[in-house]
Design a protein around this nucleic acid. Structure first.
Lengths: 199, 199
DNA sequence: TTGGAGTAGTTAACACCGTTAACCAAATAT
DNA sequence: ATATTTGGTTAACGGTGTTAACTACTCCAA
């Protein structure tokens, strides 16, 4: 993945940082170049265009997110516990690496429309893991979910809502952040565990 | 709200349509103006700048969404039924008015960062209604939810995930759309109704 | 040792962008 | 009849992504 080039990596670092600080709109190739102390066109030596630069950033973040969740959840053998671990890891990653997490969603609308579908699917390893975990729980008879694919997607959306409201500081002032996170995770998890068949 | 001006309305219509067709990135004041057969600067007679134009579009859409949900759900007196109605209405609106629905979320990241917070809160009437409905259900003892404010937000996020995966045609080819929607709604609703105390 | 071929960058230019300033003509009010 | 407001215009500024053409520098073969 990393093509072993210092300037290329530097451009990615600067872009990620600027994106997080000032948002997408004010991110320009020329500004990136200036900060890297290089001419604007040099960026094109390493990235086809602005879209591709952004896509690389997204891909990198999704990869990190996937790896993080996998490294936490894969070792867990019990299905229910792995289910919980995936959810917890997703939220943890978002809160611990806001710079990377936000890129996945912040860039979306415009650049994402041109994001190659196949890459989109390929990078969703963590999602696949969640689906598999739910499916196995169902097979084992410890969970009762009709459509794991749907359920997993819903969970994903829900978790994103939780993480983003915290990161964007849109949390109602009456609500304690830590408690909000705990409660939300609990809400998601319990929504499924209630359906667990008691052995 | 509508300031009774034909050109102003035309600009909004064109913008909304162009935004839906070609996305945010390729939306420019000059293109809007050209399509309205007017000089680019004329837009500034009715909108302070591009941001304000977008914000007006968002506000309008959120207003429509809120009205739609309210008109469907307010007449329903039974709390549980109203709860279901709100959820169903949200999804229906998204699928029936994709042009308006997508604006609410498509524009977000860049322009949304500058969207005045107070307006943001003011327009969330439908959300408030959902919170109120859950709270009343809890008071009436027919639902058991610790933090209605959190729960409502989670539901919102989850529903958005459902609607957007359909609108963006990101649905896995194995899955039937109609069934996906029904199942998802059921999943959300059941997640709460399971907690209903049987009288 | 020379010279040709990459390599890693440069400058100049194009077409487009949001926005401002200055202007103008027609409608309206005094 | 004249002043003011309304609803537009053109010209210009500084910024944008991207392309084309160029330039140094390194490396390798004859």
């Amino acid at each position: 993945m990393s093509e072993e080039n210092p300037l290329r990596d530097q451009i990615l670092d600067i872009s990620r940082h600027m994106l997080f600080e000032d948002g997408y709109q004010s991110l320009s190739m020329r500004k990136i170049a200036k900060k890297a102390d290089v001419s604007a066109t040099s960026i094109y030596l390493y990235f086809e265009n602005k879209d591709h630069l952004l896509h690389t950033l997204i891909e990198e973040s999704v990869e990190d997110l996937s790896r993080f969740i996998e490294s936490n959840a894969l070792p867990v053998t019990d299905n229910i516990e792995r289910f919980k671990k995936i959810i917890q890891s997703y939220v943890d990653f978002g809160l611990q690496h806001p710079e990377k997490y936000e890129i996945i969603y912040k860039v979306r609308p415009e650049a994402m429309a041109r994001y190659p579908k196949e890459k989109f699917r390929k990078t969703r390893r963590a999602y696949e893991l969640l689906v598999k975990t739910i499916e196995e729980s169902v097979s084992a008879g410890v969970m009762d979910v009709e459509k794991p694919v749907v359920a997993a997607y819903s969970i994903w959306a829900q978790l994103h809502g939780v993480v983003s409201v915290v990161l964007n500081k849109r949390l109602d002032s009456r609500i304690d952040q830590k408690q909000f996170i705990e409660d939300s995770i609990d809400l998601v998890v319990q929504g499924f565990l209630v359906r667990t068949t008691v052995s």
